[in-house]
Amino acid sequence: MSEVIVVTSGKGGVGKTTVTANIGCGLAMMGHKVALIDADTGLRNLDVVLGLENRIVYDLTDVIAGNCRLRQALIKDKRYEGLHLLPTAQTKDKSAVQPEHMISLSEELRDLFDYVILDCPAGIEQGFKSAIAAAEKAIVVTTPEVAAIRDADRVIGLLESSGLNDPKVIINRMRTKMVDRGDMMSIEDILDILGIELLGVIPDDEQIIVGTNRGEPIVGNDESLSGKAFRNIVMRILGEPVPLLNLEPNQGFFLKLKKIIGFK
């Protein structure tokens, strides 16, 4: 039973590619066969985040144009057995990929892999429409900012009207201290507006930036809290009910005590 999942957000820069890369690596770590498709033609990034940029020979547009076979365009990951990337072209634009192309590609990949995950471009135009056409499940990534949540809400509406019901949300870059000060929307505030199921919360972590720059997704880092958060998300995708992570594990005893008594 393979699944085709699209990772989308509406707004750019909220972490779609990072989330796609980490979920992909996480599922592969658990022994699943995973194909990641970069649907952001013209502005591809997934290859960079995975550290596979230098291995691209053929891409998705070549497969569509019939220049190569699908298997020739698939790049095997250097770290995780079972993880493959289907990159897209950097020198073409979104019109090179139509929804029907995505559907037939995903159908073909579905036979080879357990999970096919599409990294959707920002926006709600052609690239978005092509990316969601093939998906049967959707993950919406947002950050605790009003603009990102507005766009996420818009995207959820569009997903629902194209038959992708019950998308799940990942809240990225959460800063618990700011929430405590009342300067950032809380998880509850966000879920109140979006009204969909929460798949996970990723803390704002410098290590994620370091990891993406090096082409090493944080999910493989056992020490970091954000890596743990991603591993929990992977478990939830696999159907295991993992409780939400406490995002402030380094709290001292006195701080906790203060909090209990009521001093923040």
């Binding site: 507005r150 766009d151 809400d153 818009r154 959820i156 509406g157 569009l158 629902e160 507006i193 009204g195």
Partner: peptide, 24 residues
């Protein structure tokens, strides 16, 4: 249903919505 950002409803008459009307 809940109306999300970008969704528009116009009706010549009275309108009852069983859900939220989100910003946008």
């Amino acid at each position: 249903r809940t109306l999300r950002s970008g969704q528009i409803v116009h009706y010549e008459g009275n309108l009852v919505i069983l859900g939220d009307v989100n910003p946008g």
